[in-house]
Amino acid sequence: MKPAGKRSNAPIFWSLFGAGGMLAALIGPMLVFITGIAVPLGLVLPADAMSYPRMLAFAQHWIGKGFLFAVVALFLWHAGHRIYHSLHDIGIHAGMGARLACYGLAMLGTVLAAWWLLAIGF
């Protein structure tokens, strides 16, 4: 009988994956529709719905800031974790390399999102 191995740190990444996956499942399709289809084509919503003053005000408000940060960061962590496992699935067991590529890029995106949201000001 073999003893149980070292404790896994996966809960950190799995939790972010789960949170991002849930957010993407709940509002992902509608967000894509709003920002990528409805507003650019002037469907349903007014064509100036994402005008500069409006989006600036939204991104300067703490609720808007928090929402934008959560969406960008959690979507990235969700995707990073899933892609990391998919690489393993297709036989790329790059270990630290794959981990850095997937989680590293999610972390980079998170930092950039935070930086630019702070640059937008309050």
């Binding site: 992902g28 934008l68 969406v71 995707a79 892609i83 995106g109 950039l112 937008i120």
Partner: peptide, 19 residues
């Protein structure tokens, strides 16, 4: 997941442009 990542990057670029 690739498409979720792509959309996050579109939004991330948007944040940069807004800033």
């Amino acid at each position: 997941a690739l498409f979720v990542a792509a959309y996050a990057i579109v939004l991330l670029v948007g944040l940069l442009r807004l800033a």
